[in-house]
Design a binder for these strands. Structure first.
Length: 261
DNA sequence: ATGGCGCGTCAAACGCGA
């Protein structure tokens, strides 16, 4: 079973790009972030034609997450618990039945948090604390679980071409990285890093300053696996070639292959 | 050293991203 995540940076502007990749890569489940549209505006029909069921948690203009699945959804839960006043659409999770049992998949768009020292950075850290609470609750179910998305966290120096350029950025602050590490230590496996331990493994290249041409990338799109999912991990990858396409997203697809029977 | 791009928006600049 192939599960992928992609910050698409606007599903309406990126529809042809997304369809081209989906038709080629054929993920069973695709988590999208930054769809930047309300639920009703999501272009569902072309994905349904490719055999996908669609769960959307949208927002006008900004943010917005979705899960596309060739398997029927048993249950869909939009929104990160713990802050009913939070109107930002950054989280949706779904449970699917697979031959070996069930798998839960979450599509997450963790706040950017820049600039540091502002309420935006405080919101990021608070969101990470809420996210850890939810992740712990899901771990306690002791089932295959995949937390996939744009974490806006550069975990280690190895995860940036030029880590020194990020020392004043919210993605690389000690508060940010400590929270990510604490989350991992709850018992998750970072699927990409486990399969690809070396340098130059990136998922984002800025549109500006020729970042792609210089391979000035960072790894901020992650797939965290519960022990029950990690035990079934066969492979993982990053489809960086999409960054060279016409009208690319600044993020590229990240995927795993799990043996779920 | 600085800025450099792209999307979405009450439609022209502006907020936002990373």
């Amino acid at each position: 079973m192939k599960i992928a995540t992609w910050n698409i940076n606007g599903i309406k502007a990126r529809l042809d790009t997304a369809l081209t990749w989906v038709a080629d890569a054929k993920p069973d489940v695709l988590c999208l972030q930054e769809i930047k549209c309300v639920d009703e505006a999501f272009p569902a029909a072309p994905f349904e034609s490719l055999g996908y069921n669609i769960a959307v948690h949208g927002q006008k203009g900004f943010n917005g997450v979705a899960i596309l699945s060739k398997l029927r959804f048993d249950d869909v839960r939009p929104g990160l618990p713990g802050a009913p006043e939070d109107a930002q659409a950054r989280y949706i999770e779904a449970t699917l039945t697979v031959p070996s049992g069930v798998v839960t998949v979450a599509s997450i768009y963790l706040p950017n948090g820049n600039p540091i020292g502002t309420e935006k950075f405080a919101y990021k850290l608070a969101w990470m604390d809420r996210f850890q609470d939810r992740a712990r609750a899901l771990l306690a179910e002791e089932q295959p679980l995949v937390l996939a998305g744009d974490y806006n966290v550069i975990p280690e120096p190895l995860d940036a071409k030029n880590p020194e350029n990020w020392v004043n950025d919210a993605l690389y602050q000690s508060e940010t990285r400590t929270r990510f590490r604490t989350l991992l230590n709850c018992g998750f496996t970072d699927a990409i890093r486990t399969c690809h331990p070396g340098p130059n493994v990136f998922s984002f290249w800025d549109y500006q300053a020729g970042a792609w041409q210089k391979n000035d990338g960072i790894r901020i799109d992650h797939m965290l696996l519960s022990p029950q999912a990690a035990d079934r991990l066969i492979a993982s990858g990053i489809d960086r070639h999409t960054r060279g396409w016409e009208k690319p997203s600044d993020h590229v697809p990240v995927w795993i292959e799990l043996d779920l029977g």
